[in-house]
Nucleic acid binder design. Structure first.
Lengths: 213, 213
DNA sequence: TTTGAGAAGTTCATTTTATCACAAAAACAA
DNA sequence: TTGTTTTTGTGATAAAATGAACTTCTCAAA
């Protein structure tokens, strides 16, 4: 069952919304509630759930706990996900320190850089030489890597990642990575995001819908 | 002429690719070249250009310089774009220090926080109290703001931004902001991005296309 | 038990988005 | 000139996503 990326993004959104609802004491939730929280229509919510075989009660809606559990399972969030970061510049360091990941079951195992001044092999989350990358990810079974190096090194590092067995790359470098067929690449480009905002602000935005990350 | 967001993202991509091609010495470029660089089809490139009235020569392709100029103009990149950042946590600080913006004609004027320990009013790019936000953006005519505060404060700060006249918000908080009709919100949610990667990696990704930031 | 209302689940139509295919234009060569 | 090639520009076509509407089930109250 091959799923659409947009649909998966919505699932993540639903999960976030559900966690908030749960912390507010909600036990049950209706498609309309989730739709409001995620900024979509209730049809969409029900259809998304239907795609994944998620089912509720025809009158009582969905049980919050069950739904969170179910979506987390689909997203693979029931087991700890190990991640490494390459590039200890501004962005890389910020991501190393970002504590939001842990709550989401994502564990940053290590950072890597080529600059010896940045090494810190003894820290709880160590910063290691890039030469150690291959061995590290293989011995720890890491499949996901964050690429936060300058654009000139991005292509080279992405090849290293792929050859070391990385299967998913979150790319912060402002270039288009051409990955292997079994490697997923997702890019975040801050300048592109800002250019978008600038365009729509200048265009006198007419209620542009909020877009996926 | 109301434009599609995806289309604008592609324009940004084309522009980035063009800059690289230019630095390699290219003077002319064909739709096929740009398509390869941006990871789309040549038809798509031509159709995007057609939407904006960008036109080339029926056999000679497009002039690189002219095209960069044209796209930059459409994206509003020919004048300096002023931006402020609210929230001087990990992400906010990293964005303050990020030097990639300047090359793209984006100028971070100031950062804001509620924590007096973070103030630095005399720095070249000052960090100011959040109370000064409204006055600052109004006196400087700032229309774009980056929201990098914890989720609990995100809604409150976004309301402040909107009431102060901000028209575009780049949101890093993991919640769905509900903006006014004339305010554009674009969200970057790191956890959602990683969850996506995790899902497709676990699903044994079959050449998933790289996606927009 | 019956009835009515509320909400899920599903189908269908609409709208949006991307691809294909081809005619018209430009450049070049003979 | 005239023909040939190359690439654009766009209309037609296909595919995908969305939203509305309909059907079915469940619960609760009379």
């Amino acid at each position: 069952m091959v799923m659409n990326r947009k649909c998966i993004i919505r699932l993540s959104r639903y999960k976030n919304a559900l966690k908030r609802l749960k912390s507010l004491g909600f036990v049950k939730v209706f498609s309309g509630n989730l739709a409001d929280a995620a900024g979509v229509t209730s049809s969409q919510v029900r259809k998304d759930f239907s795609l994944f075989g998620i089912t509720g009660n025809r009158r009582g809606g969905y049980r919050v706990d069950e739904l969170i559990e179910r979506i987390s399972h689909i997203l693979g969030k029931n087991e700890l996900q190990k991640v490494v970061i390459v590039g200890m510049g501004n962005i890389g360091k910020a991501l190393m320190r970002y504590r939001g990941f842990e709550a989401g079951g994502i564990k940053v195992l290590a950072g890597f850089d080529i600059d010896p001044a940045k090494y810190n092999k003894l820290a709880e989350v160590p910063i290691l030489p890039l030469e150690d990358f291959r061995e590290f990810v293989q011995s720890h079974g890491v499949k996901i890597a964050i690429l936060a190096v300058p654009d000139v090194s991005a292509h080279h590092v992405s090849e290293l990642m792929i050859s070391a067995g990385i299967k998913g790359i979150l790319n912060f470098a402002p270039i288009q990575l051409r990955g292997a067929d079994d490697v997923v690449v997702s890019s975040i480009n801050l300048e592109v995001e800002l250019e978008n905002l600038i365009y729509f602000v200048n265009a006198g935005a007419k209620a542009e819908p909020e877009i996926e990350a």
